[in-house]
Design a protein around this nucleic acid. Structure first.
Ligand SMILES: [Mn+2]
Ligand SMILES: [Mn+2]
Ligand SMILES: [Mn+2]
Ligand SMILES: [Mn+2]
Lengths: 156, 156
DNA sequence: ACCCAAATGTAGCCAAGGCTACGAAACCAT
DNA sequence: ATGGTTTCGTAGCCTTGGCTACATTTGGGT
């Protein structure tokens, strides 16, 4: 008798179906992948802006402390951010934001604060709101952000 | 005269300050890094569960379409998920969720739906809600999720 | 049975984020 | 000015997510 082969589950035609209805979902999902580097960039420029405001300059060690990574990781990432035009820096000097980088930082900080305030308004504890906002901030579209602001204005 | 050295910005003591106040923030941020693989895992198990429900089985090609990546990427990721105990699969066969994987899938799907419904309730358009939820779902803590649900019940 | 198209796997490449270890530069006191 | 501490850079390693090109296995049709 022929070996049983076939998996142990099926019981339905399967296959051939998913081809069109899923493509919409695919775009939502595939996006989320490559965007990792962009999220990192956002956290960096925001941290750099904060450090400059708070201490006058952004140094590698300070960024490493703020971001919770080693100075090596910061150093290499700064190289990438410079290549992408968000910062400029010279060896052993502190780091500066370019116009583009500063603009991104402003945008990120704004989103960060809106998300945090929104979660707080919903009754989430400060610590949790801060933690969740740190991740959520990178995924709120302008439309959703507007909805958050509208809610805040209505429940101020 | 001694070369000018020093960067072109400062004007403040700088340094030495950020060391304690930043550590809280660091934990929020450092988290967001390594968690990338976990987010991917969540999207995979959720997609696998959906495919099994919809078509009876989850095959590599279907996953590739759903997730918007090539079958090669899916294949390798499945290997990792198997190593981590979320799925089991044999060469050329369809993919199954383990108990652990199924549990994670249920949790993710639940979060996904709650976030989507919440955004919809806030007035965000369906398409935008779907897209944003796909990213936000991975960053919502139990506490925040509870706040979302509370809002939904109050504004059902 | 056989053949071919589709599905899956493999090899090998890249970018990115993380790390440790170690060397070089800068800075601060003495 | 010199030396020690701190900061920064480099080398080299790992993991992961993506890809193309190519090999292999399945499975359906003739
Ligand atoms: Mn963040
Ligand atoms: Mn932030
Ligand atoms: Mn997702
Ligand atoms: Mn999802």
């Amino acid at each position: 008798m022929p070996a049983v082969r076939r998996s142990t589950a099926p019981s339905q035609p399967a296959s051939s179906a998913p081809t069109r209805s899923t493509s919409a979902q695919a775009s939502s999902l595939s996006k989320a992948r490559q965007d990792n580097a962009r999220e990192i960039a956002e956290d960096y420029v925001e941290a750099i802006a904060d450090l400059i405001t708070l201490t006058g300059e952004a140094r590698v060690v300070d960024l490493a402390r703020t971001l919770g990574v080693t100075h090596v990781t910061v150093s290499r990432t700064i190289t990438r951010l410079q290549r992408q035009g968000f910062v400029r820096s010279e060896p052993y000097r502190s780091i500066f934001l370019t116009e583009s980088g500063a603009a991104l930082a402003r945008d990120c900080k704004s989103r960060h604060e809106t998300v945090t305030a929104f979660l707080r308004a919903l009754g989430v504890r400060r610590e949790t709101a801060e933690r969740d906002a740190e991740g959520i901030e990178h995924h709120v579209s302008d439309e959703t952000l507007a909805a958050f602001l509208k809610f805040l204005h209505a429940n101020g």
